[in-house]
Amino acid sequence: MFATGEIALLRPAGVAPLLERIRRVRAVSGIPLVGDDRWSSEHWGHVARAAADARLTPDIAWASMTSGSSGSPKIVLRTAMSWSASFPLIARLLDAGEADVVAVPAPPVSSLTLFSIAHALEGGPRPALARGHAIVPADYADATCFHGTPHAFRALLERGCPPKLRAALVGGSHLDADLRERAQARGIRVTSYYGSAELSIVATDDGSGLRVIDGIETRIVEGELQVRSPFAAERYASAPLRGDGRWVTSGDLATIDDGLLRLRGRADGAILTASATVIPEEVEAALRELPGVRDAVVCGLPDAVLGAVVVAIVEPESGAEPSVGDLRSQAARSLAPSHRPRRWHLATLPRTAAGKPARAETYARLIADGGAAS
């Protein structure tokens, strides 16, 4: 049985059973939180205890997990209105209604997928979820739209694009111009966006740059983006969101110029090297433009002389074999000396359940391998 006003931690199941279980939880004013079947029993226990200890108020309707791309995932608590207020916007961006099917490759533990389920329960498109943990085109054969990460979108296009797909909403990490162009050449209208589990959707990009959504206020405080939005969550399970009152933040650095929002990486991820401040995401964006590079993660390793050295972990395109020498020389054409990686690693990047590069795990692997220079 599901208790009124308490978090119900659910194990994932097929899309129809999961929707019905979530519907039953909400019917008694319970708060659904979906776990991941890849979690260990110890981790299930940890999340269950955190959910039981959560500070709840009567207006809390949903609980979701952060991606954990920068560290341990946290439980995010939000009202029903914080999601439902954005459903008309999402429907317009996807050009989709109750008769449509949205491909959602991220597992149900992802806040993005739980959002899509919540939308479906209020007349949005029916979500098509993966039957396993790989992206198999047959799982999305009837999809008319897509909502997920660039990694999942690329995989779906490469492995067999659903024939009815006409619109894609892509968020979670950087969408490169080549992927957008390839999708548009297939007749798929692509909108990328900036958001987070805490903030929900904040800004959209149709190819001309990120623009903040009408009705959302933004400000820059000491370089960090703060948002006041009807779509924002209420709190974490055991702590308030970061920010100042209703102005909340996910910790992203940004600038706003001529109406365009430009993200500059995480405030807690900046690398201080030889008196220069290097924002990893800025270097990563330059590396993704290099031939043969699919994705990249940049981090800093401690150095007795420089304070830290810039390290690049590069994931090559399928079938490509770029050399470290070539990458060094190509990067030197677009990056200032202080921003050029001094150490290089070619590897497949670990990813979160939603398909984002798992920064914390990447760093941990680098340390475990000794951070050897290339």
Results as ranks from 00 to 15, higher is better:
residue 2 F to I: 08
residue 7 I to A: 07
residue 17 P to M: 09
residue 19 L to W: 06
residue 19 L to G: 06
residue 21 R to G: 00
residue 22 I to K: 02
residue 27 A to P: 07
residue 27 A to C: 08
residue 28 V to Q: 04
residue 30 G to K: 05
residue 45 G to W: 02
residue 45 G to S: 09
residue 46 H to R: 15
residue 46 H to Q: 15
residue 48 A to K: 08
residue 53 D to W: 05
residue 58 P to F: 08
residue 64 S to C: 05
residue 65 M to Y: 06
residue 68 G to T: 04
residue 73 P to W: 10
residue 78 R to S: 08
residue 78 R to A: 08
residue 81 M to G: 06
residue 81 M to A: 09
residue 84 S to R: 12
residue 86 S to V: 08
residue 86 S to M: 11
residue 86 S to I: 04
residue 88 P to E: 07
residue 89 L to H: 07
residue 90 I to R: 08
residue 93 L to S: 05
residue 105 P to N: 06
residue 106 A to T: 00
residue 110 S to A: 15
residue 112 L to Q: 00
residue 112 L to E: 01
residue 116 S to V: 01
residue 116 S to Y: 00
residue 119 H to D: 00
residue 120 A to C: 14
residue 123 G to N: 10
residue 128 A to N: 01
residue 129 L to A: 01
residue 130 A to H: 01
residue 133 H to V: 01
residue 136 V to Q: 13
residue 140 Y to S: 03
residue 142 D to S: 13
residue 151 H to W: 10
residue 155 A to S: 09
residue 159 R to H: 13
residue 162 P to K: 15
residue 169 L to Q: 03
residue 174 H to A: 15
residue 179 L to T: 07
residue 182 R to D: 01
residue 188 I to F: 12
residue 188 I to S: 07
residue 189 R to T: 08
residue 200 S to R: 05
residue 202 V to C: 14
residue 202 V to N: 10
residue 203 A to T: 00
residue 214 D to S: 14
residue 218 T to M: 09
residue 224 E to C: 14
residue 225 L to H: 08
residue 225 L to E: 05
residue 226 Q to N: 10
residue 229 S to D: 05
residue 229 S to E: 02
residue 236 Y to N: 03
residue 238 S to F: 03
residue 241 L to A: 08
residue 241 L to C: 05
residue 242 R to L: 13
residue 243 G to R: 15
residue 243 G to V: 13
residue 243 G to Y: 02
residue 246 R to P: 13
residue 247 W to Q: 11
residue 248 V to Y: 00
residue 249 T to L: 10
residue 251 G to V: 02
residue 252 D to H: 12
residue 254 A to P: 01
residue 255 T to I: 11
residue 257 D to G: 02
residue 265 G to H: 12
residue 265 G to M: 03
residue 265 G to V: 14
residue 266 R to L: 10
residue 272 L to A: 13
residue 273 T to S: 14
residue 273 T to Y: 03
residue 275 S to H: 15
residue 280 P to H: 04
residue 281 E to N: 15
residue 282 E to W: 00
residue 284 E to S: 06
residue 285 A to V: 15
residue 287 L to D: 12
residue 289 E to S: 13
residue 295 D to K: 03
residue 296 A to T: 07
residue 297 V to A: 10
residue 297 V to Q: 04
residue 299 C to N: 06
residue 299 C to V: 09
residue 300 G to N: 11
residue 300 G to M: 09
residue 306 L to K: 15
residue 307 G to D: 03
residue 310 V to E: 07
residue 314 V to H: 08
residue 319 G to P: 13
residue 324 V to F: 14
residue 329 S to Y: 06
residue 331 A to C: 14
residue 332 A to F: 10
residue 335 L to N: 08
residue 338 S to R: 09
residue 339 H to L: 06
residue 341 P to A: 07
residue 351 R to Y: 02
residue 352 T to M: 10
residue 353 A to Q: 11
residue 353 A to T: 12
residue 354 A to T: 11
residue 358 A to G: 03
residue 360 A to P: 00
residue 360 A to F: 11
residue 361 E to S: 04
residue 361 E to L: 11
residue 363 Y to H: 06
residue 364 A to P: 01
residue 367 I to D: 02
residue 369 D to L: 04
residue 370 G to T: 07
residue 374 S to V: 14
